[in-house]
Amino acid sequence: MTEIKNIYCVGRNYALHAKELNNEVPTSPFLFSKPTHAAVYANGDDVMLPAGRGQIDYEVELVVKIGKPYYKGITIEEIIDQMAIGIDFTLRDVQSELKKKGHPWLLAKGFPNSALLSSFFLFPGEDACKQTTFSLLKNGVQVQRGSITDLIFDLQTIIDFTAEHFGLAERDIIFTGTPEGVGPVTSGDQFSLIWGEEVVGQSKVILK
């Protein structure tokens, strides 16, 4: 199992997703983070999420893992060594209240098990990623499908921005953004994380 250092997430990085939540499309990368306690692997085991805090939404994303320390001018082919497909679980009602107050999103984004990850596998390069879609099945039905060709801010921009503002080193991971189609989680839902046509992770979610 891959040891994770920092978890960074890019918000509103697909235009249609920003619009479906009535958010403005950003003009520069919009980042937030999750604690390492948020990370959990979709290895077939049940995943516990909190009940009683309002609606929880799923957001499938392509996740990249950093393989070496960042330096100015490094390319994504040099710095990214592995990738995964993940779900950024969000306490949507909590997030809405935080947004109204102008508060950080941590309470809505950083709860335990809120960063569900497939196993990590070799990063095939940006061009190969552009030719392959990622998707999410909920109870056997596809609910989200995306491609990094639709990113507002591409992988290189995300890497450079993250490193400049927060630092970036080996074992850091970045959730690169979710396409449209996010929706609510119900206790007992079975989620399958898909890369191309391959199932790379599965878990059932229990609200408790």
Rank of each mutant, 00 (worst) to 15 (best):
G181Q: 08
R92F: 02
V40E: 00
T132Q: 10
C9R: 06
I7L: 10
D93H: 07
Q142E: 13
Y71E: 15
E77Y: 00
S119W: 01
T75D: 05
I66S: 00
G73C: 08
K109S: 05
T149M: 11
P69C: 08
P50Q: 03
A84T: 08
L49W: 02
A39P: 01
A108M: 00
F175L: 11
Q95K: 07
A169F: 07
K34Q: 12
F134V: 07
A128T: 02
L106Q: 12
K208N: 15
N22R: 09
I148T: 11
I7E: 02
I85N: 06
G44A: 04
T157Y: 02
G110L: 00
K204M: 11
A169W: 01
K100A: 14
P124D: 03
D46T: 08
G167Y: 00
I87N: 14
V47M: 01
V199H: 07
P50G: 04
F120W: 11
S192C: 09
K99V: 08
I148V: 15
M1D: 08
L62R: 05
A169T: 14
V63K: 04
K99D: 04
L16E: 15
D45Q: 13
G167C: 02
D45M: 09
W195N: 07
F123E: 04
L91Q: 15
A163P: 07
I174A: 04
I56K: 07
E170D: 11
L155Y: 07
D45G: 12
L98Q: 12
T75E: 04
A38K: 06
E59A: 12
L168T: 03
L98R: 11
L21Q: 14
L21P: 09
I79F: 02
V200A: 10
V10L: 11
V141C: 07
V10F: 01
R12I: 06
G146P: 06
V200N: 05
D45L: 12
A163I: 00
V40A: 14
